[in-house]
Amino acid sequence: MRYAQGGGLTDAERTTREQLRLQAAGRFEGGQTNVEIAAVLRISVRLVERWRRAWRELGEAGVLSKGSPGRSRLSEAQIARLERELERGPLAHGWADQRWTLARIRTLIGRLFHVSYTVEGTWRLLKHGWSWQQPTRRAIERDDSAVEVWKKETWPRVRAPRRSATPGSSSRTKPASR
């Protein structure tokens, strides 16, 4: 279902919505029409139709809440195992370098637990205990003095000059008429 403001429901709102569905299920059993139920519960007829279809197929279980869609599909034990596997590093899992990417972690979760996550879902799963990291080592070939010389001498020459803030330099050359 889609909800206003592009978001889902909070737990309290989900409970309220479930109570409405259960009231509708009681009215289905009482033989009321979709229009009557929609008027009494102050919801759309289409929504009542959808609930009635679910009620016909699964009974009361069809109108019960399925819970928060944002819940992790991994248990605490599985998350702990995932952390241990991540600490072993990408090389231990067959990748050629020592960089964990969200796509690689997603693949690892699929291999270990046979659960499919999106890259965004993987980020949400990890963002509470993990953060992105930069490598601590620098390239062996790096010459810091050459970098400083380049920044002082070459960069000012190749950098695009900034536009001056003179009258008429904006995209509008004439004042807007009223």
Rank of each mutant, 00 (worst) to 15 (best):
F113W: 02
L102A: 10
G129N: 13
R178F: 10
S72R: 13
E36V: 04
A80L: 15
G30E: 15
E141A: 12
R172N: 13
G67K: 09
R106D: 02
P156F: 07
S171D: 14
L20D: 09
L22N: 03
K151M: 15
L86N: 01
D97F: 09
D97Y: 07
A12D: 15
W150G: 10
A25G: 03
R14Y: 03
G6W: 05
A39L: 09
K174C: 10
V48Q: 00
E57M: 12
G62I: 03
S72I: 00
L86Q: 04
Y117A: 01
T154Y: 08
S164K: 14
R17P: 01
W155K: 14
S75K: 07
W51V: 00
E148D: 14
S116T: 07
G168L: 05
G8T: 08
R124M: 12
A176C: 12
V158R: 14
A54I: 01
V35T: 08
G129Q: 13
Q5K: 13
G59Y: 05
L126T: 02
A39T: 11
P167R: 11
R159C: 13
R163V: 06
G59L: 06
P135W: 07
L108Q: 07
D11N: 11
G94A: 05
R104P: 02
P156W: 05
P69Q: 10
L64S: 01
W55L: 01
P69I: 02
H114I: 06
G59V: 04
P161T: 11
T166W: 09
F28W: 09
G31D: 04
Q78R: 03
A77Y: 05
T10K: 04
S164V: 11
R42N: 09
G31E: 02
E120M: 15
R142Q: 10
F28C: 02
G26C: 05
A176W: 08
A54S: 10
T122G: 01
R104C: 02
E18F: 01
R81L: 12
H128P: 03
F113P: 00
L91K: 09
G59C: 10
A61C: 08
F113G: 01
G89T: 08
L126F: 04
L108R: 06
E57N: 11
G89E: 08
R2E: 08
T33L: 05
E29K: 13
D144H: 12
E18A: 03
H93Y: 06
W51P: 00
A139Q: 14
I140Q: 13
